[in-house]
Amino acid sequence: MRADLKELWRFRELLWAMVERELRIRYKNSFLGFFWSLLTPLMTVVVMTLVFKVFLKNDTPNYSAYVLAAYLPFMFFNLALMDSAQSVIVALPVIKKVYFPREILPLASILANFVHYLLALCVFFCYLFVVWAASAFQQAPFTWRIAFLPVLLGVSLALTLGMAFIISALNVFYEDVKYIIGVLLYLAFFLTPIMYFSENVYYAMKGWGNLWLYYAYHLNPVAELATTYKKTLVQPGKIDVAGKLVDPVPQNWALFLVTLLTSIGILVFGYWLFNRMKWRFVERP
C-alpha cells in the first residue's frame, strides 16, 4: 500500500488536471453552468421548508438553516458516490491503452464533487448571514463550534472516498452495484436526520423506554455526520418535537469518535480493496 501511495503522489499533477477537467466538462454545454449545483439544494430547501413549516407546522426556529446544514453534506455524499461508481468503468477504454494509477479515477470524481460542496457551503454561510442581518444582528448565527468544521469535512471526505473506492472497483465486475447503491442512498436519505432532527429519534426512543436504538441509529456514519453538522453549523436552539419545543440533546462526542474511526477504517479498507482489484479491471471477463 505504501508503494501505491508513493506512485499516486508521483501522479498528483495528473490528479489535479483530472479534477479540473471534471469540473470543466460538467457544465461546458450548459447555460447556467455552476449555478445548477447551487440551484438544486436551494430549491430543495425551499420546498422542504414549505412542507415542514407550513404544511406540517414544525415550529423549530431556523428550520431551513438546519435542513441545509445536513442536506448539503448528504448531497455531496450522494452525488459523489453516484459519480464515482461509474468513474472506472467509463474510463475502461482509456486504461486499456495507457498507464496511470487507476485510483486517480474515483479520486478525481470525488474531489470534483468536493469542490462543489465547498462552494455550496459558501452559499450556506451567505444564507446564514442574510438571516442574521434580517434579525438586525441579534443572535449570532453560529457558535465557536464552527471551528470544528474542517474536522467534519475531513471525516466526510474520508468516508466518501473509502466508499467510492469500494463501489467503483466492484462496479467494474458487477454492474448491479450502482443500482444497489442508488437504492441504498435513497433509503439513507430517510434514515439520516436531514428533514427531521436527531432529537425526534431521541425522544421517540425515550418514549419507548430504551435509548439503544438511538445509539444504533447513530452508528451509521452518515446519520452521525448529519447530526454533528447540524449542531456545529447552526446556533443550537429549541427544537419542535411532536408539537412541543424541547431543548436540544447535546452533541455526543463518543458517537462522533466512532464515526471518525469507522470512516478511517472504510477509507483504508476501500483503498486496499481497490488496489487489490485494480490490475484486473482491464481483464474483466
Partner: peptide, 29 residues
C-alpha cells in the same frame, strides 16, 4: 506508449486542453 492515438482525449474539451491533459497522462508535469 502509442497503443492507440489519442487515448484519453475527451470529446468535449478543446484540442489545446486535451494536449495538456494527454501530456500529463504520459508523464509530463
Amino acid at each position: 506508449p502509442l497503443l492507440e492515438l489519442g487515448a484519453g482525449f475527451h470529446p468535449d474539451l478543446t484540442g489545446l486542453e486535451n494536449i495538456l491533459f494527454n501530456g500529463m497522462i504520459l508523464g509530463l508535469t
